[in-house]
Design a protein around this nucleic acid. Structure first.
Length: 224
DNA sequence: GTCCAGGGCCTAC
DNA sequence: GTAGGCCATGGA
């Protein structure tokens, strides 16, 4: 089966099983950006605690966040873990938004996606996944977000051998799917929903897994 | 008590 | 260029 068709089948199967995920749960692009940093290597529940506190403490603008004392900001983001790092990362991001765009995110609209991506990656504390999450979920750019679930998923479907890096996995999706922001949005969220929902440990077989029929045949039929 | 989340940086080798 | 250690909280 052609790769394009397989990827569409994967999407349809996940969508049929989990339904629309409605990401990103946030009000406006700036809030999405902050959430992208705060959710790094942690659960969304922590972000749900930190975000209201942040909204109560400042006006939710880059300048407003920068006006908070560091200790106060640390206290607010504490529920998301790595609170010392994340407070600094939020400050870095806001300083960039203020210096480069005057705090006006609408000015990013005329900047090409590859340029924006490089600008975000240059920030300390923003790596490939966070940068791409911002591009897709905050700025509506057709960029496929890769995460640990995605990397684990592909080998079990026979679509990769597990040695591919971030960009290789990303290219696999983007070269075989149309550059559709809505599709990429839902696709990544569905992979996460599937990944955290079940089968994180490679159980020999899981008949309840919606991807059972797509898993590799022959060798140990590891569920996904 | 142990494991691990919607990662990324730094340091060794 | 990549494997390993580190950052920290909270829920299962």
């Amino acid at each position: 089966m052609p790769l394009t068709q397989t990827l569409h089948q994967l999407y349809e199967t996940l969508y049929g099983s989990y339904g629309s995920q409605r990401w990103w749960p946030a009000e406006g692009p700036f809030e999405v950006m902050l959430g992208a940093v705060l959710t790094q290597n942690t659960t969304w529940s922590g972000v749900e605690k930190a975000m209201p506190a942040l909204k109560a403490a400042c006006d939710m603008t880059p300048a407003g966040l920068l006006s908070l004392p560091l200790e106060r900001l640390q206290e607010i983001v504490r529920p998301t873990g790595y609170f010392r790092q994340k407070a600094l990362r939020l400050r870095n991001l806001c300083r960039f938004l203020l210096d480069r765009y005057g705090g006006d995110l609408a000015l990013m609209d005329r900047v090409p996606t590859p340029v924006l991506r490089q600008e975000f990656l240059a920030l300390h504390g923003i790596g490939p996944e966070t940068a791409d999450s911002i591009l897709l979920y905050a700025l509506n750019r057709p960029v496929f977000v890769v995460d640990a679930y995605t990397v684990r998923l592909l080998p079990r479907l026979g679509l990769a051998d597990g040695r591919q890096g971030y960009r290789e996995v990303q290219d696999l999706f983007m070269e075989n799917l149309p550059p559709d922001t809505g599709l990429y949005n839902e696709y990544h969220a569905l992979i996460v929903a599937h990944g955290k929902g079940r089968c994180r440990k490679q159980t020999p077989r899981c008949m309840e897994c919606p991807l059972e029929a797509m898993c590799l045949h022959g060798r140990m039929r590891t569920s996904v």
